[in-house]
Design a protein around this nucleic acid. Structure first.
Length: 230
DNA sequence: TCATTAATGTGTT
DNA sequence: AACACATTAATGA
């Protein structure tokens, strides 16, 4: 497999000429991490940016009682990490590979050099990060105002937009998430998620298999619309 | 395949 | 929401 192909799949580098990708490839060696590895944690010095070439990582925080709250999941082609001049929203968060993952590490000075030479790239960074911020704000609002059912459906829709494959009327999440993990994302408990999901299953909004959720996006969206109206 | 562990389902407080 | 416990599915020797 062409090493540069992976770089061309990173969202901020999408239509960069091969010559530039080559330069980046030289600065940012590829490394692979196994499923379950914590790639970075709050106490690390935040001096690097990670380019997620292939795989999935979960961003989460841990509250004082030791419970986890998942901020989000990133898939192929995303960027995360922290440097002084550029934050991707992972500050003070743990980042764990939930699949075997392939990533590049870009050092602060390399990135800055890169951005200085490529203003168009800097703009693309702005777009990507702004979009992430926008989603985060929307999610926060839903989390604050909605009940568990709403939050869960909202989460499933968002996940499905990024990580699902179409199966008839349903979108099948290709993330194998447990009820526990879903609970950690919507700020609820495992039992409540189990109960809520089986209700939604009765209504035909989702279909359940072990560690797998299929969402009827049409029904899910109309549920959210109704909720918004009320 | 069987035993162990993980995930899910359910009733009670 | 928290807990205890039952049931069922996945995992791996």
């Amino acid at each position: 497999m062409d090493k540069l192909w992976y770089l061309s799949q990173i969202n901020v580098f999408q239509d960069l000429p091969r010559s530039d990708l080559k330069v980046i490839g030289k600065m940012a060696p590829m490394s692979s991490v196994d499923k379950g590895t914590v790639i970075s944690s709050p106490m690390d010095d935040h001096k690097v940016l990670y380019l997620l070439k292939k795989g999935r990582v979960r961003l989460y925080k841990i509250n004082p009682e030791g419970k986890q709250f998942t901020l989000g999941i990133l898939g192929d082609g995303n960027v995360f990490g922290e440097i002084e001049t550029l934050s991707t929203g992972t500050r003070n968060a743990y980042v764990e590979a939930i699949e075997d993952t392939l990533l590049c590490i870009l050092r602060k000075d390399d990135l800055e050099k890169l951005l200085q030479g490529h203003p168009d790239l800097a703009i693309k960074f702005l777009h990507v990060l702004t979009e992430r911020l926008r989603e985060a704000e929307e999610f926060l609002e839903t989390l604050a105002l909605g009940n568990v059912t709403t939050r869960l459906i909202y989460l499933l829709c968002k996940l499905a937009e990024h990580f699902s494959i179409r199966r008839g009327d349903f979108a099948q999440l290709e993330l194998n998430l447990t009820h526990q993990e879903l609970a950690e994302m919507v700020g609820s408990t495992r039992e409540t998620v189990t109960v809520t999901l089986s209700h939604l299953s009765q209504e035909g909004i989702v279909r359940l298999r072990r560690r797998r959720v299929l969402i009827n996006m049409e029904k899910a969206r109309s549920f959210l619309d109704r909720e918004e109206a009320s």
